[in-house]
């Protein structure tokens, strides 16, 4: 093929290719800039003193770097009447997110395993209903959920929020695991049954060890959802159990007098940090897990 192309034509196509490549880089670079600009402003602002913010330029680098705003945001900023910073709320979020992610992932794994590998009468309907659950907007479930939490006696507690997030997450986690497990041949389950293994043994010894990519995907997804959630957090918490997103909102909205932009920015970065970290640490698995399909026997 290449032998047949005359050399001027080849030179031309080479030039076109280089041009295309460079325009691609330029376009990508442009979007990267747009994307990183807010983060840049946040970080620089959080490192400036209030004085500098008032007098200086929004996009300028800080003249004197100070971490005062970070300390204030972490342990001194006021959320309404209390002035403890985001620290207690950050731990609330951890206490909510970690168990909720763990439970919803585990339940999703078992659900997906059942729906994909133990086909029983009505399995498809149950799966369809769970899938439907993914598309119900948050707002719709607020009132019924408040009622349920009240009946269960866990309204306003951390456990209550864990419960809400688990319930809301199961649809997604089931979907993830089900789609992963349907690609695994049923003969694997059959072979294990003949070998004498039961329901949980097969799950534990054969399916779970295969599941690392999809576990990572699910954990990232669930963690991001739960950590970033505001609506459930503000609706189903009370003083002392609010997650960091709610605290952040309160800090930004409740300052009287002069607005402490540097503290707001620092608090926002702190609140966003865990999700960033999860992506950086596990992002590679995330991409791999999303594209992983078949399992070689």
């Amino acid at each position: 093929m290449t032998e047949l192309v005359t050399s001027p034509a080849r030179g031309q196509s080479q030039a076109v290719r280089v041009l295309l490549r460079w325009s691609l880089y330029i376009a990508l670079g442009f979007f990267v800039l747009i994307y990183l600009m807010p983060l840049f402003v946040m970080v620089t602002t959080s490192l400036k003193s209030l004085e500098e913010i008032r007098t200086g330029d929004l996009v300028a680098l800080p003249r004197a770097v100070t971490f005062d705003a970070w300390f204030t945001a972490w342990s001194g900023a006021c959320t309404g009447i209390k002035c403890e910073g985001v620290k207690p709320y950050f731990w609330n979020s951890v206490l909510i997110a970690v168990p909720a992610v763990a439970i919803s992932t585990l339940v999703g794994a078992i659900n997906g395993y059942v729906v994909a590998q133990w086909r029983f009468r009505g399995a498809n309907i149950i799966f369809a209903l769970m899938l439907f659950g993914c598309f119900i907007p948050f707002q719709v479930v607020l009132l019924p959920m408040a009622r349920v939490l009240g009946i269960m006696g866990i309204a306003g507690t951390i456990q209550g929020l864990i419960f809400v997030h688990v319930v809301y997450g199961i649809g997604f986690t089931t979907l993830f695991f089900r789609n992963y497990y349907v690609t695994i041949p049923v003969e694997l389950t059959k072979a294990a049954k003949v070998d004498g293994a039961g329901f949980f043994r097969i799950f534990w010894s054969i399916f779970l060890p295969l599941s690392l990519p999809i576990i990572v995907v699910t954990v990232i997804w669930q963690f991001t959802q739960i950590w970033n959630d505001f609506l459930f957090g503000v609706s189903f918490s009370q003083a002392g159990t609010q997650p960091v997103t709610v605290a952040l909102n309160n800090i930004v909205n409740s300052t009287t007098g002069v607005k402490e932009y540097n503290v707001d920015m620092a608090a926002a970065i702190i609140a966003a940090f865990p999700t960033l970290l999860v992506y950086v640490v596990a992002g590679k698995y995330f991409i791999r897990g999303l594209t992983a399909g078949s399992v070689k026997g």
Binding site: K190, D195, I206, L210
Partner: peptide, 30 residues
């Protein structure tokens, strides 16, 4: 009677070897 109590062994068309286990573990799993 459930498969595990039928005293049978089966070789599948696709072999259905447990992908995360070594050959030795595959053979001794039962």
């Amino acid at each position: 009677v459930s498969p595990k109590n039928r005293n049978i062994a089966m070789v599948f068309q696709s072999y259905a070897l447990y992908p995360t286990m070594s050959v030795a573990k595959n053979i001794t799993f039962g």
